[in-house]
């Protein structure tokens, strides 16, 4: 079914996933101006962590019991790696020229990906991931998979939770302050190191949730799933306005919908018959990024980056 409502729905689901991952990128960049290239791999390890939990549960465990455990397990792995990366790879380089932490991030991303590839049993190919029963559900002409429902539910929970946390809690306000002006925040008595760790941790948590959702949706996890997802998610973060968590979500949705519609509809444009379809979806996503950078580089909702000039 290639109807517009279906495409929009598909885009919504895809976009929610991008948005969850994008939040990790945008929070970290907003505070320390670092593109955490390893974030895509953190997403991937969250998925593998969840899978490990599942495979270590006794056979016959209901998916409804397993699922929360998988989310917890995956989150633990992702958050630990994220915090470890901050502590041991990025923090020692805080004063260094900007190229150094970027290259470190790339190295970390490579190392994580290859570590899973080499040492996780049978990870050289995709590993199958459990599925939720039921579905597809039909709402009007739109068909919705059970995995999609999970995705939307958790995305809403996470986003609203984060929004509330940032706005009302003391730590949340401290995060806003650190994002705007880290030096002054420190002078005001805010422990910026702790704030940075929290930002990494939240990013890791959301990425892990997104990974479980991805596994449910696509039925598999693969060692290189982080690379593409990471790239798309960072695009989403830039689209929405880097540093802006609402922007990350919005950017994710926009990107998801654009990608869905492009795959479905571009081939209908005369002259571009061969440029639609799945293999070109990524190309169009990239073109969208370039266009946004040209036309509105601060993103849809505006940047929120610490002024370090």
């Amino acid at each position: 079914m290639n109807t517009l409502p279906q495409q929009l729905a598909n885009g919504l689901f895809l976009g929610s996933m991008y948005g969850l991952i994008a939040i990790g990128y945008t929070m970290v960049y907003g505070i320390v101006q670092l593109i955490n290239f390893a974030h895509g791999e953190i997403f991937m390890t969250g998925g593998f962590g969840a899978l490990t939990v599942y495979t270590s549960l006794p056979d016959g465990t209901s998916i409804w019991v397993a699922l929360p455990l998988m989310v917890i397990g995956g989150s633990l792995v992702a958050v630990l790696i994220a915090i470890g990366a901050e502590r041991f790879a990025y923090r020692p380089l805080r004063g260094a020229p900007r190229l150094a932490p970027l290259i470190t991030a790339i190295g970390l991303s490579l190392a994580l990906q290859q570590a899973v590839f080499n040492w996780y049993p049978k990870a050289d190919n995709a590993l199958s991931f459990p599925q939720l029963p039921g579905g597809p559900f039909h709402v009007g002409s739109i068909s919705i998979q059970s995995g999609d429902i999970f995705l939307v539910v958790v995305a809403v929970i996470c986003m609203s939770g984060l929004a509330a946390f940032v706005r009302t809690s003391r730590t949340g306000r401290a995060m806003q302050a650190t994002a705007q002006d880290p030096d002054t925040a420190q002078l005001m008595g805010i422990d910026t190191n702790r704030i940075i760790v929290i930002a990494f941790a939240i990013g890791g948590l959301f990425a892990a949730v997104a990974a479980v959702a991805s596994g449910l949706k696509y039925g598999q996890v693969k060692y290189d799933m982080g690379f593409q997802a990471g790239l798309k998610a960072f695009t989403a973060a830039v689209l929405g306005g880097i540093g802006n968590i609402y922007g990350a979500m919005l950017g994710g949705l926009v990107l998801g919908i654009a990608e869905s519609c492009a795959s479905a509809y571009i081939s209908n444009i005369p002259g571009m018959e061969q440029l639609g379809g799945g293999s070109w979806a990524n190309v169009w996503a990239f073109v969208l990024l370039i266009v946004v950078l040209l036309v509105r580089p601060q993103g849809l909702l505006g940047e929120r980056v610490a002024d370090r000039a």
Partner: peptide
């Protein structure tokens, strides 16, 4: 060969830390 990329990654991290 299989560990080559892993070694690259670790090498980049260590290089930036100790001998940029």
């Amino acid at each position: 060969q299989n560990y080559e990329l892993f070694a690259f990654g670790i090498a980049l991290i260590l290089l930036m830390r100790f001998r940029p």
